[in-house]
């Protein structure tokens, strides 16, 4: 598949930015600078980027616990993202969402989700909007192998299929739902084949190969835009960090991890574009430098931003509501 040079550069830049963002978040979290939990996406970059390369700001995505990569692939500002993770007033959600609910509807990013399987019905709704208004927008529903076992995911796939909604279901099978291997929690030999139950195409993709993801997602998204209904992609990949930061990762072996790191999506991309002469080493290195600078800037911005004033707790609950009924009583 021919990919324009500018898009190749974009793919590399986004994957590198996600990796640098997540590695830095891991450091900042370890240093005790971030409240709450973080679930990191490093290792799965090829999925978010390979899919979102086909989307515009007008298209929608729903996301998961592990949502930073989806945000970055969808073009959410990394400074505002980092500030959100730091709980700052300048955060993309004004410090009210945090890592697990990070969102930016202006970029079509309908939220990370603290509820496993929370996103699929919402993606159907975005698709229903597009179908009802007759636009060519699509909705992509990212979900994990854990969410593959939620009733909402199955209900949503059925609904999208009977209404022929422009929705693409992208299962990111990173092999473990928390600490539970997918081979234990899933009765089927693969998740993609479940598409047959909903009469939609189901495709198993190597989620560490951005070219493979790009190609499969391109076909699925084009199909959705043509009004031909949903597709299920299962993209297999590996998360380099634990389920959340602080997870001792006792459920997998160093050998398993080393084997997967041999298939690192960013290194594979580099090898491919260099061996085929599509991009030069100098230009990839220059992108790395820019990305590092951007992450440093993001952390500086987050650290220097103020915390939200405490009384901001009471705003943004409703568009309109009597404020005295929102306050605590005494």
């Amino acid at each position: 598949m021919e990919i324009p040079r500018e898009r190749l550069r974009w793919i590399y830049e986004r994957m590198a930015l996600i990796r640098a963002f997540e590695d830095r978040v891991a450091q900042e979290f370890a240093a005790g600078k971030l409240p709450g939990f973080v679930h990191l996406y490093a290792g799965e970059e090829a999925i978010a980027v390979g899919v979102c390369a086909h989307l515009t700001d007008r298209d929608y995505i729903t996301s998961t616990h592990r949502g930073h990569g989806h945000c970055i692939a969808k073009g959410v500002d990394v400074k505002a993202m980092m500030a959100e993770l730091f709980g700052k007033a300048t955060g993309v959600c004004k410090g009210k969402g945090g890592s697990m609910h990070i969102a930016d509807v202006d970029k079509g990013m309908l939220g990370a989700n603290g509820i496993v399987g929370g996103g699929p019905p919402i993606a159907c709704g975005a698709g229903l909007m597009a179908k009802t208004l007759g636009t060519d927008q699509v909705a992509v529903c990212f979900f994990g192998d854990g969410a593959a076992e939620q009733g909402t995911t199955h209900e949503a796939m059925n609904l999208a299929a009977i209404w022929k909604l422009p929705v693409v279901f992208v299962c990111e099978n990173n092999l473990y739902a928390e600490s539970t291997p997918w081979t234990y929690h899933c009765a089927a030999p693969d998740i993609a084949s479940r598409a047959a139950a909903y009469d939609m195409p189901g495709i198993l993709v190597d989620g560490t190969d951005v070219f493979a993801v790009y190609e499969a997602a391109g076909e699925a998204i084009a199909r959705a835009r043509r009004g031909e209904g949903p597709t299920l992609l299962e993209c297999r990949a590996f998360r380099y960090y634990g389920h959340f930061q602080g997870d001792a990762v006792s459920y997998r072996t160093p050998e398993e991890e080393a084997a997967y790191r041999q298939r690192d999506p960013i290194q594979r991309f580099r090898q491919t574009v260099l061996s085929q002469g599509l991009l030069s080493e100098d230009e990839l290195d220059a992108i790395d430098t820019t990305v590092q600078h951007e992450i440093n800037e993001a952390v500086r911005f987050a650290e220097s931003s103020p915390l939200p004033p405490p009384e901001d707790c009471l705003t943004d609950v409703y568009v309109s509501y009597p404020v005295e009924q929102l306050a605590f009583r005494h």
């Binding site: 919402i122 709704g125 975005a126 009802t132």
Partner: peptide
């Protein structure tokens, strides 16, 4: 499928219906 269609109403509302 109440979870699916109530959730779809949420998604449709957030995106313009």
């Amino acid at each position: 499928s109440e979870a699916a269609f109530i959730g779809a109403a949420v998604g449709a509302a957030v995106t313009g219906l």
